[in-house]
């Protein structure tokens, strides 16, 4: 098993923390993991993205060039990363903010209205967790429990009160692709 994931969106959509949760959860399950963020003067307005590897094999380069999955949260991210996914890979599109269809016909494409689904839970900030939930349902890369355990590590005990809504968001995303 080797998951090579690109997660992209604009600053504030939680793409970095989504990646960190996945990475941390992989580590909890004793898999080899790496998390590589984009860095530079592009933080506001443009696309922020991270590369995540979760693998049974040792990890060579942490740079994802042949992605098994791309999770795109906004239109510029779709334009930028659509071509990086290997044939038969998964492309998860946040259809709340992306109003076009993918041009690829060799991928498993999932349109998920992440912002609407998050709004239904009463907190638009968990749109990233909706997408992560969909991703986990599709790939079974790590267990949901590991993500919840990672949540406490990544965000600290002070955010423990948010575990419930994030759990719901993961489930909502899973439902959307079930």
């Amino acid at each position: 098993m080797q998951e090579r994931v690109i997660i992209a969106g604009f600053g504030g959509q939680g793409v970095m923390s989504m990646g960190q949760l996945l990475t941390y959860a992989g580590m909890i399950e004793n898999k080899n993991v790496s998390w590589l963020p984009s860095y530079g003067p592009e933080m506001r307005g443009g696309t922020a993205n991270c590369n995540v590897m979760v693998s049974d094999e040792p990890i060579g380069s942490p740079i994802v060039t042949e992605a098994t999955v791309a999770i795109v949260m906004n239109r510029p991210s779709l334009d930028k990363f659509e071509s990086d996914v290997l044939p038969e890979g998964n492309l998860l599109i946040n259809s709340s903010l992306i109003d076009i269809k993918s041009e690829r016909d060799d991928l498993n494409i999932h349109y998920i209205p992440a912002n609407e689904l998050a709004d239904e839970l009463g907190n638009s900030k968990v749109a990233n967790m909706v997408m992560l939930g969909a991703y986990l349902e599709l790939t079974k890369a790590v267990k949901t429990e590991s993500i919840i355990e990672a949540f406490k590590k990544v965000f600290g005990e002070s955010k423990a009160n948010l575990v419930a809504i994030n759990k719901e968001a993961l489930e909502k995303g899973a439902e959307a692709v079930r």
Partner: peptide, 10 residues
């Protein structure tokens, strides 16, 4: 390099 500095690993 920037990659070693910025990336996360266990």
């Amino acid at each position: 390099d920037g990659m070693i500095g910025q990336m996360m690993e266990p």
